[in-house]
Design a protein around this nucleic acid. Structure first.
Lengths: 121, 121
DNA sequence: TCCCTGGATTGATGAACGTCTAAGCAGAGC
DNA sequence: GCTCTGCTTAGACGTTCATCAATCCAGGGA
């Protein structure tokens, strides 16, 4: 994609305010942004909620699909997006496929939001 | 396979697992998904970080723009997206415009991530 | 073995997104 | 008033995304 302005970044000073501190969200931007982007869809957010709220910790796809008014392939696509973002994982068990939450990734994203919220109060 | 009628949701039982519990992420899906979508871009994530990590709690746009390799209007666009998502707010003060974090929205999104993560451990 | 079912993958299409250039608007200084 | 600077808005363009129909693959049962 376009990217043709190799500006040094940070060397300009307009004099309106003191220089900026180092950002608190480090170079993990790409992975974190991908995680948030995966969450940026109502269907995926609800899928994640349904999986997380299930008692056994894992849910069969056949339980998820009839909950939505979109086709099976679409649900499968959204589950794949969530899986590629590292938010969920799955395993085939006989006829059915089961999905479960990856708590570490969720906690990491939650931390990214908690830190700035607390720092700016 | 004909199945795109507005099914009541939850009335089908394939017999592979017990019925699903009520989801823990409620009807606030739309607003939350919009918030996460706004965070789903590396530039916006870094903008939020820069604003949140600033000592005074608010940052002049002229401090943000030179930090990125995209044009000024593009930064302005991303700031608008963040503002429409309720994550930041701004005010014109003389020549310059200042942005600051809205902690409540960040905290709310963080809670949405913390709850499922804790429930599924 | 064959067939049926559950689910993922592929390919196509319309909508949404990110980026740019150009133009517009609001303050500050001359 | 005029002009300059800081920032936003408008319009255009190429890319990415969400969705569906059709197809394919894996397991289980007769």
């Amino acid at each position: 994609m376009s990217k043709q302005l190799p500006v040094p970044a940070g060397t300009e000073d307009s004099g309106c305010c003191p220089p900026l501190a180092q950002e608190s969200i480090p170079a993990s931007d790409a992975a974190a942004a991908a995680g948030f982007k995966a969450l940026g869809d109502p269907i995926r957010l609800q899928l994640l909620s349904l999986i997380a709220s299930h008692a056994g910790g894992e849910v069969c796809v056949c339980e998820l699909t009839p909950r939505f008014e979109v086709s099976g392939p679409t649900i499968s696509h959204h589950l794949k997006v969530l899986r590629q973002a590292g938010l969920i994982d799955c395993e085939r068990r006989g006829t059915w496929v089961y999905y479960w939450i990856v708590p570490a990734m969720l906690a990491r994203l939650a931390d990214l939001l908690s830190a700035p919220a607390a720092a700016s109060v």
